[in-house]
Simulated scan of single mutants.
Amino acid sequence: MNLQDFKELTVTTKDRIATITLNRPDTLNAVNAGLHTELKHVFRLIADDKDSDIVILTGAGRAFCAGGDLAWLQGMIDVPARFNDIIEEAKAIVFSMLELPKPMICRMNGDAIGLGATLALGCDIIVATDTARFGDPHVRVGLVAGDGAAAILPYVVGFMRAKELLLTGDLLTADEAKQMGLINHVVPAAELDAKVDQIAGRLVRGATQAIRYTKIGINRGLRKFAQENMDALLAYESLSNQTEDHAEAIAALREKRKPIFTGR
């Protein structure tokens, strides 16, 4: 697989800046099986790309990433073994982002929800539109927050704040996320590209090796934290995938009603 083989995302490069775009705009860039697999590979490939020094991660259309695709989630309820098949992919996505030596800017052009929040957290600098929301509502669909946010969020904002966000599944406005230290810059949509280009341009003109090694050094602790926790988190998420509450939550989303949880 190379950078031009992807179907659910696109990769373009200009002036040594690579842009990875989640390209399912009709679903708010919700992650399906194909996109999940492509995310497993893209950060390793971009790390080896000789034509880029800086990476921008963004979404097509009006959202960054709305989380998991409902049909994909339903498929894993119907055949639980399918969830077990993606565990190694989920780990590879997070670890490859945290191990990427090139600085990566999240151009958060809209909501970053669930796995979308994980993808944003895997970046080094986040620039968001002022209307975007951020959060990981796994528990609101009866799932353990196992695919990344719980392995990164406590390290970034502290355990107490992370537990409240993950146990309630609450969404933050971009300004609230900035106040917590989750987002670096919040701008009107019309100013998003200019701000991202300004930061990317400054980094690409900088001392490449010094910047890379600084990122690698800073990320050592975060990588260790994620690696120590993701196996257990994903195992628990796999168990929660088989609960009645999760099936009820997905059914409620598809039927556009509130779920009725029973604790089973």
Rank of each mutant, 00 (worst) to 15 (best):
L73I: 12
I125K: 14
T37N: 00
L100D: 06
V94A: 07
L73T: 01
D78L: 10
D26E: 15
P101N: 13
N29H: 04
F95R: 06
L57V: 12
H36Q: 12
A92G: 03
H36F: 13
G135M: 09
D136P: 01
K40H: 11
A120R: 03
L100I: 03
I93F: 02
G135F: 05
L39C: 08
W72P: 00
M108T: 11
A60N: 04
V79W: 03
R62H: 13
K102S: 02
G122E: 10
I87K: 15
D136T: 07
A47D: 13
L39D: 07
A33C: 05
A33V: 08
A132T: 08
D111I: 00
I105C: 02
A117F: 14
A112Y: 11
I86A: 02
D48T: 09
S52K: 00
I105H: 07
G59E: 13
I77G: 07
L39N: 03
D78I: 11
N32C: 01
R44K: 15
A71R: 10
A90S: 15
I87Q: 13
R107T: 06
K50R: 10
T131G: 10
L119D: 06
I105W: 11
L115D: 11
D78K: 14
A60M: 01
I93K: 05
F64W: 13
I105G: 07
P80S: 08
I46P: 00
L70V: 06
L115I: 09
A90V: 00
D85Q: 13
L57K: 07
M104Y: 09
P137R: 03
A66R: 10
D26V: 02
G59H: 10
I86K: 05
M104V: 10
D78T: 15
A117T: 12
F43R: 05
P103T: 01
G68H: 01
E89Q: 04
D130C: 08
A71I: 00
K40S: 10
L115F: 15
H36S: 11
N109H: 07
G59N: 10
G135P: 07
H41C: 08
L45W: 08
A71G: 15
V55I: 15
D26I: 01
A33I: 02
D85W: 00
T37K: 01
T118Y: 11
L119M: 12
L57T: 08
D130V: 00
T131N: 14
D124A: 07
L73M: 13
D85C: 01
L73Y: 03
D85E: 15
G75K: 00
G114L: 12
I54V: 15
